[in-house]
Simulated assay, not measured.
Amino acid sequence: MAGHSIPHFQNDAGHSAIEIGVKEFMCVGANPPFDHPHVFLDMGDESEKVCPYCSTLYRYDPALKAGDTVPAGCLYEARAA
């Protein structure tokens, strides 16, 4: 995956599942300061992956772009200091 960044996703709203457009990503849990360790997840050949920290179920949807989520608003973007 050299040459591009890994998207990070958060689940402040406590959704049971989030659809995303990538199979390799980072889960941060909730937004800081309530986040968990930022863990790299890879779905491999599967279309779903559960975060071992927050139990969010991520589902791959090939129709979505890398930063898109369903429900909307789950892409994590670090704020500049």
Rank of each mutant, 00 (worst) to 15 (best):
A30P: 01
F25R: 06
S16C: 00
F25M: 13
Y58P: 15
F25A: 05
E24Q: 15
G14D: 02
S47F: 10
N11E: 01
L57V: 15
D45C: 07
S55T: 05
E77R: 10
M1D: 09
S55M: 05
E24W: 12
S55Y: 03
P52D: 10
G14N: 03
G67S: 11
G67L: 12
A17D: 01
I20L: 04
Y58I: 12
M43C: 10
R59H: 00
P37I: 09
G3I: 04
L64D: 09
K49P: 05
A30N: 04
P62S: 11
V22A: 11
L64N: 01
Y53R: 08
N31K: 07
Y60F: 15
G44H: 10
V28H: 03
G29Y: 07
N31T: 15
P33G: 07
Y76W: 11
M26F: 15
C51M: 00
V39Y: 06
A13F: 04
Y53D: 12
R79N: 02
E46K: 15
H15R: 01
A80Q: 13
G73T: 00
H15S: 05
P33D: 06
V70Q: 08
F40C: 13
F25Y: 12
P7C: 11
G14K: 08
P71K: 07
F34L: 01
Y53I: 11
Y53G: 04
Y53N: 13
L41M: 14
R59D: 03
A63D: 04
Q10N: 07
G67M: 03
K23L: 10
Y53E: 11
P62Y: 00
A81P: 15
H15Q: 02
F9P: 14
